[in-house]
Design a binder for these strands. Structure first.
Lengths: 140, 140
DNA sequence: CTCTTGTTGACTATTTTGGTCAACAATTAA
DNA sequence: TTAATTGTTGACCAAAATAGTCAACAAGAG
């Protein structure tokens, strides 16, 4: 039940972007340094975020990446789903056909409740929430 | 964020035991067959459950395993914690010393909320609940 | 046109997971 | 007491997932 580094790194990278409010471009190199992420690995994490329309990018001098939407519109469930592939703790929730017992499996119902609990939390938190927590952490 | 087969198989095995109410001994071979678990693998899953006092075992002819406590006293969080090693989606929750930022990391707080959501569900469900769901599934 | 920065795909290394095998211990029945 | 049965343990192995690297390329800016 561990989160992959993709999800962890990706979340931290987006938080970093959200902290640069005005849609300012931030070079991947800077994100990599500030969040301790290997640059070539970060490049692979950013790519799906760009394709999903969460992040936009510009190349060349002064280039970098930034959020497309304001932080309060980026919900974490969307992010984790994208980076992790799924929020389900077992495959049979997304692909019932892979298990012959899906239709009448009691444990499957259990894992479904776990998934809903996870989604519930991640649906309710946005990048803006993380930004505010960070500010509270930094200043008082 | 996938559950290991250890946790999935283990839960199914315990449910199987809970369905044999009276503390009746069930051979591992039977559990393995009914739940589609490789027998030698199941043996390794049962072992920690025996050591944790959740299951007792008897060898020899007519031997097998059974629950130590009645199903309503076996909480799933205990089981999953045992088989999975942890309910935390990231290691830094259990071992803050492994990450230099633990003390002031915003994402860590987020993952902690996820863990609490998972625990909340698993704390509230016992083997007896699963048994009842199974009965409801079987009979009407 | 060259420097910088992002993009892509192939590749590799490491770790985790899932599973097997064999030797052994305990229990029961013949 | 011996043989069959069933659980126990530890070593071992294979496959898959994960994490990470490298190199070639594309596109902007000076």
């Amino acid at each position: 039940m561990k989160l992959s580094t993709r999800a962890r790194y990706g979340t931290k990278a987006l938080l970093e972007l959200a902290l640069h409010e005005n849609g300012e471009l931030v070079p991947l190199k800077e994100i990599a340094q500030r969040q301790d992420i290997p640059l070539p690995y970060l490049e692979h994490l950013i790519s799906p975020l760009v394709q999903a329309g969460i992040v936009r990018s510009t190349r060349g001098i002064g280039g970098g990446v930034s959020l497309v939407k304001p932080p309060h519109q980026v919900v974490l469930s969307e992010v984790i789903l994208l980076l992790e592939g799924s929020l389900a703790p077992v495959d049979c929730l997304n692909h019932p056909e892979t298990c012959p017992h899906s239709g009448h499996c009691v444990t499957r119902g259990l894992w479904n409740e776990v998934r809903e609990a996870i989604s519930g939390v991640l649906d309710s938190i946005t990048l803006q929430d993380l930004v505010e927590r960070q500010r509270r952490e930094d200043e008082p």
